[in-house]
Write a protein that binds this DNA or RNA. Sequence first.
DNA 1: GCAAAGATTTGCT
DNA 2: GCAAATCTTTGCC
Length: 244
Amino acid sequence: MRGVNEGDRTPPSDALGRLPPFDRARLGGDPVEAAQSLVGAVLLREATSPGSELRAGRIVEVEAYVGTEDRASHARFGPTDRNRIMWSGPGAAYVYLVYGMYDCLNVVVGAPGVPAAVLVRAVEPMAGIETMRTARLAHAARSRRAWSPDRLRAEASRLAGLDPPRLASGPGAVAAAFSIDRSATGLDLCAPDAPLRLADAGHEPPEVVATDRIGIGYAAEPWKSKPWRFLDPTSRAVSGRRRR
DNA sequence: GCAAAGATTTGCT
DNA sequence: GCAAATCTTTGCC
């Protein structure tokens, strides 16, 4: 286990842990604007056990899902047991399971009663990188039941050599690296003392590029082509294509 | 009650 | 570029 900040140039973990909570008012207006404002924000996870570190990273890629009319949104069937939290108002976490093995973190946005959420697709790690590797491996061991001990050892080796910007690149990887699962649904991500929360990075927002959303080929137009994916084109942590 | 598909990731061809 | 792994949610009979 490495000592705190030994040999890296990221801000000290204790300073990251004291960043101001993300302003809920910035999430409660237009959901698309809320999504853009989350690019550059910091995702924080308090240490979960002795020996684990505080995890922090800059959000560099998100997607907005807006209202019941959006044919790509989970809200398109109206409120259900799974998606009900999307109607609850800004700041709540909505975590769902996709493809039977990947949890995906969303930030509920928009006014209460309007179902909208922002999918966090990629985070650029700033602290707790070794804990993220451990969490990625734990997720693999839990979800890939068919894997042999040899295959798991190979995965441990692959993760050990993975560049930090790739550790939380993609929505399933974000949740795995930050140890987020569906039990986090309903957490208030704007609460200053939440174990998983959003913080303000405290400097100018990054350049933000808009593209259409990923993995929603099932949706009809015009929803399929809405430019509601937002990313920081300078980050190596962005998943997939950077342009339309 | 059952079949189908999914806001994904990874490895192999 | 394609398919596998895995299981919950939703739709249809």
